[in-house]
Amino acid sequence: MAPAAPDRRVSLAQQLVLDLSRQILAGELPPGSKLPTEQAFTEQRKVSRTVVREAMSRLQAEGLVETRRGIGTFVVDSMRPAEFHESKPQQGSAYDAVAIIELRLSLEVEAAAIAAQCASPRQLATIRAALDEANDLQQLGAQSTRIDFEFDLQIALCTGNSFFIDAMNHVGSTLMSAAPPARAVESELRTLQVREREQIYAAIARKDADVARAAMRLHLTNLLHHARAAVPSAQ
């Protein structure tokens, strides 16, 4: 039996969710901002009302927006995850970074393998664009959590699996809310990260699931090593 065709409606809705959540978490849509109307989204995005409604429903479920009947849909406070971290004074951002990367290891390794099997030419171009932006930034010695994670989000989107995508969206929300201010990274680590991401992309582009899986595991394992090294030693 031939595999079922992918649900394009779900993919379009998830892309809208990703785009809006990134804008919200980056502060481009601050708390209190009113989102465009349903009709405006359908005209701007060339999608159906059903797609827009599904996207708004997902954003509401993630606690990023709220709909006020008869008024519209508004961005809510997206920094609530940070309040949770503030309630744990015994742990700082270094501990948080370790925990987040450990979670990412359980998600992104298999997402990379699935992406290698499923990515369309258009999706590959989007991953390539995200990779180039991250590489350009790191070549300058800078670092941006949002731009770095964009590459990973686009890989997750290739899976077409809403559970993978939603989980990665939540990971991204935690990173944006709880991550410390971006800082420069040492040249050796910067070069390593660029090379590892290129290896992941190359494997996905070749549709080599095993290599994509191994390359993503190596990349995240190295990130985990550096994150653990940053954790203060017990006194």
Rank of each mutant, 00 (worst) to 15 (best):
E62M: 08
A97Q: 15
N169I: 05
L189D: 13
L103A: 07
V65G: 00
A184V: 09
T73W: 00
R183I: 14
E150F: 01
C158W: 03
I127Q: 08
L103Y: 14
R183V: 13
S48F: 07
V211I: 12
V109R: 04
Y95R: 14
R213P: 06
G92W: 10
P3H: 10
S57H: 09
L16D: 01
P181Q: 12
E62A: 06
A2Q: 07
L12E: 15
H85E: 15
R68S: 03
D96R: 15
S78M: 05
A234Y: 14
D152E: 10
P180L: 05
V98K: 04
L223G: 07
E83D: 15
A184I: 07
R58C: 08
Q39S: 09
A205Q: 11
S187Q: 15
A215R: 03
L223Q: 10
A61P: 08
P180W: 08
V185L: 13
L25T: 00
Q90Y: 12
M1E: 09
L25C: 10
L59T: 07
V109F: 04
Q117G: 10
V171Y: 05
S120V: 05
S11I: 13
T42N: 02
A26W: 05
T174F: 12
N135D: 13
A116T: 02
Q139M: 14
P31W: 01
L20V: 01
H219R: 07
S78A: 14
Q91W: 13
E28W: 08
S21I: 01
Q143E: 09
L218R: 10
V185K: 07
A116C: 09
I71E: 11
T191A: 15
R213I: 11
E186F: 09
E150L: 08
V171N: 05
Q235R: 14
L64H: 02
G63I: 00
Q123F: 03
L18T: 02
L137K: 00
Q44E: 08
E196S: 02
T221K: 11
L124D: 04
A94V: 08
A113M: 04
G141L: 11
L224T: 01
N135S: 14
S144A: 04
G92E: 10
L64E: 02
S177T: 13
R228T: 11
Q15H: 13
Q235T: 15
I127Y: 03
A134Q: 03
T42L: 06
Q139L: 14
I204V: 05
E150N: 11
E83I: 14
E62V: 02
D19V: 00
L64A: 01
S87V: 07
N169V: 03
A178K: 14
S57F: 02
A111M: 03
S21W: 06
C118H: 13
R22C: 00
S33F: 07
L224V: 08
I155N: 00
A203S: 05
A40V: 06
A130D: 02
F74M: 06
A230I: 09
E110D: 09
S177I: 04
H85S: 15
S11K: 12
Q193I: 04
L192G: 12
G160K: 03
A13E: 04
S57P: 03
V231P: 03
A112L: 04
R183G: 08
D96C: 11
L192S: 12
R69N: 10
A82E: 12
T221F: 06
R217A: 13
L107S: 08
D7C: 06
R190E: 05
V47K: 02
E66L: 10
D77E: 14
A2I: 07
T221L: 09
Q90E: 15
